[in-house]
């Protein structure tokens, strides 16, 4: 450390006009252009193409494509699945990261690793696991069947598969932040006589609310967009168990390209809306976010 200071001073006095970056101007411009070109080519252009293809056959056919009963059923199902999976993972993620960051208990590292499991296995396998468990040839299938309970090839299976693949999103956002924040605030609250629950709602939760929001947004985006796992457990019953991503594939395979892109554009729009909400909230509450990060 003592070596670094004179070096820094030497650098600063030696060339005052130079900024913190040492690359020359043409290099910097080239780097920026490459980044912009990359973003345009791989992010903006495909997104633009989706919307262009969607409206190419005219707004009339766009409207009829997205107001078709099967498309509406797919939208309702997608929103419903997200509405169940996201709160479930919000509660689980919060509880798990609270336990991991604030407490010491045996098996903590196992829990921490288990949370990442859905990230490391392919979504197709996530789906097949539920077929293996609840399918007619699976462990619980015959029992469920004889009691008239349908899990896979029905809405419960789709919800389960979605919860599984979106499991880590909230916890992964919260655990590092909570660990970094430590337990001093909670200890202070407890020593001043606050109850455990009160400490949680008045101290812990406010400290992590922005990370929590970010995790929920990511979780929601994935819950609405999940294809692989849901495709395995869906059964593809039209107007009943097709989510929007599945509906897009079906329409595409039926030569119905305009309708496929219309539904795809709607799905993209849902994702964009969540991003816009996030940006708007960040903009509105800049000070609070900065304050919560200082901890």
């Amino acid at each position: 450390m003592s070596d670094a200071i004179p070096l820094d001073l030497d650098f600063a006095t030696g060339d005052r006009a130079r900024s913190v970056t040492t690359e020359r101007r043409p290099v910097r411009i080239a780097l920026i252009l490459i980044a912009v070109a990359f973003l345009t080519l791989f992010l903006l252009l495909p997104l633009f193409a989706v919307f262009l293809e969607a409206v190419r056959a005219g707004f009339g056919s766009y409207w009829s494509a997205i107001s078709e009963p099967d498309a509406i059923a797919a939208m309702k199902l997608t929103l419903m699945v997200a509405a169940i999976a996201v709160p479930a993972n919000l509660i689980f993620g919060l509880a798990a990261s609270w336990a991991i960051a604030k407490f010491e208990f045996p098996g903590k590292s196992v829990l921490n690793t288990l949370i990442d499991l859905p990230f490391s296995v392919s979504p197709v396998i996530s789906g097949l696991v539920y077929v293996l468990l609840f399918g007619l040839q699976g462990y619980f299938g015959p029992y469920l069947q004889s009691h008239g309970i349908q899990i896979i090839f029905a809405v419960p299976g789709i919800v389960l598969a979605t919860i599984f693949v979106t499991f880590p999103f909230v916890a992964r956002e919260l655990v590092p932040l909570m660990q970094e924040q430590g337990t001093q605030d909670e200890e202070a609250a407890l020593s001043l006589g606050a109850s455990g629950l009160k400490t949680f709602f008045l101290v812990t939760l406010p400290n992590v609310k922005w990370a929590l929001l970010y995790g929920v947004i990511l979780c929601n985006a994935r819950a609405m967009g999940e294809f692989g796992a849901v495709s395995v457990v869906s059964g593809h019953i039209r107007g009943k168990t097709n989510t929007m991503p599945l509906q897009v594939e079906i329409l595409y395979n039926e030569y119905n390209f305009a309708a496929a892109f219309a539904v795809a554009s709607l799905l993209a729009l849902l994702a964009l809306v969540t991003l816009v909400i996030k940006v708007a909230l960040e903009w509105r509450f800049t000070d609070q976010i900065a304050a919560s990060r200082r901890h």
Binding site: F134, G135, Q137
Partner: peptide
Amino acid sequence: IEQSHGGSGKQARAVVDGLQ
């Protein structure tokens, strides 16, 4: 009447696995 369409082999597998 509800419809489900897909590759014939895949559809048969789904019925075997409990698609009603």
